[in-house]
């Protein structure tokens, strides 16, 4: 009884503010916008968010407040989404395919379901690459392939986390090529790269962003994108090499479930304006990112597509380990 009463009392003002906002908010945003990121400030996700922060206030007149909430491969932030206010000011950066894979692998322990994930704008992506360190005897993808075939289970391949995009790419290549590599998970991208460079593992699955950062000390052997990237014209795709593996990690701006279509559209449009700013776009490209633009409502279609295309991988990864 008391609980019910409380709920009513609590809902009235929330409802009123929601009404107010939906009627008055001609000039969205009218205050600073929060964006929660489920990773630390220096990793690929953190940087993907910061690119927008640089030009956000110039384009929208308000500040973008980024909250880094690293934990559980992003899940700590995503478990929070359903508690956020659906008013267009509490947003979360969504990672794909992480948000598809985790609820499958972790079940009730994941803290969120794929239904909680509501993207309104896919704005950037990074293809994954398989890389070795500069001193490695593997000069081409062929070399690495031969080594894995000759020594099944003995070539160690580093990647970030279990059930993340690196793991998914590793699994896909293994399946498509009928290969057996040994996957060694690390806690974040910089640890993965550290392990690769120190020679602790033979190869690593990582992102093109690392190819830009560490161009001289690591050698990328193949890229898991549909076509070659303009930034690395000499880097062959896995498909060209006869292994149709495409695994591109992408980022989207997410709103809490229950956000109205109108607010979704506003958020989508605003961020589209920010990321289409020439300096943001060129910064992202030079950093090894591949800008994309899938606004609301097409973003729902993309979400469904990613959900079904990674569904099987998710099941396989959670079974295998």
């Amino acid at each position: 009884m008391v609980r019910f009463k409380n709920k009513v009392i609590l809902t009235i003002p929330v409802f009123l503010t929601a009404l107010l906002i939906s009627n008055i908010a001609v000039a969205y945003p009218e205050k600073s916008v929060q964006l929660t990121v489920g990773f630390g400030p220096g990793g690929p996700s953190g940087i993907a968010a910061r690119f927008m922060q640089k030009r956000f206030s110039a384009v929208t007149g308000q500040d973008l407040v980024i909250i880094n909430k690293p934990g559980a491969g992003g899940a700590k932030a995503w478990a929070q989404i359903k508690k956020d206010k659906p008013d267009g000011y509490q947003l979360t950066l969504l990672n794909f395919p992480h948000t598809v894979l985790q609820p499958i692998a972790r079940g009730a322990n994941a803290g969120y379901t794929y239904e909680d994930i509501q993207p309104v704008l896919y704005y950037t992506s990074v293809p994954q690459v398989i890389a070795v360190r500069k001193e490695s005897p593997f000069k081409t993808f062929e070399d690495l392939l031969m080594a894995i075939k000759k020594n099944p289970g003995k070539i160690t391949i580093a990647g970030t986390g279990i059930g993340g995009s690196n793991h998914s790419a590793f699994y896909k290549l293994n399946t498509v090529g009928k290969l057996k590599g040994a996957y060694v998970p690390f806690k974040d991208t910089s640890s993965t790269i550290g392990a690769l460079k120190s020679g602790a593992t033979d190869a690593a699955w990582t992102f093109t962003t690392q190819g830009v950062k560490d161009g001289d000390s690591i050698r990328m052997l193949a890229i898991a994108s549909e076509k070659r990237m303009p930034l690395f014209p000499d880097l062959p795709t896995l498909t060209e090499l006869g292994f149709p593996v495409v695994d591109v990690a992408s980022w989207a701006i997410g709103v809490p479930p229950g956000t109205s279509a109108k607010i979704r559209e506003q958020v989508s449009k605003m961020f589209q304006k920010v990321v289409s700013d020439p300096s943001v776009a060129s910064d992202m490209e030079n950093g090894g990112y591949l800008p994309i633009s899938i606004p609301y409502p097409e973003s729902d279609v993309e979400k469904a597509r990613l959900g079904s295309s990674y569904g099987a991988v998710g099941v396989a990864l959670s079974k295998k380990n």
Binding site: G40, P41, G42, G43, G46, I47, R50, F51, K54, S190, I193, G194, K197, Q210, V212, K213, D214, G215, D216, S217, D283, N286, G287
Partner: peptide, 27 residues
């Protein structure tokens, strides 16, 4: 030199350099 953060705050500094367009690494 390596593009690997030495300490946790260095990861932030590294990120800032990327956003500022300063490329890291031996170059």
């Amino acid at each position: 030199v390596l593009g690997i953060p030495g300490t946790p705050p260095d990861a932030v500094i590294l990120g800032a350099m990327m956003v500022h367009g300063v490329q890291i690494g031996p170059k």
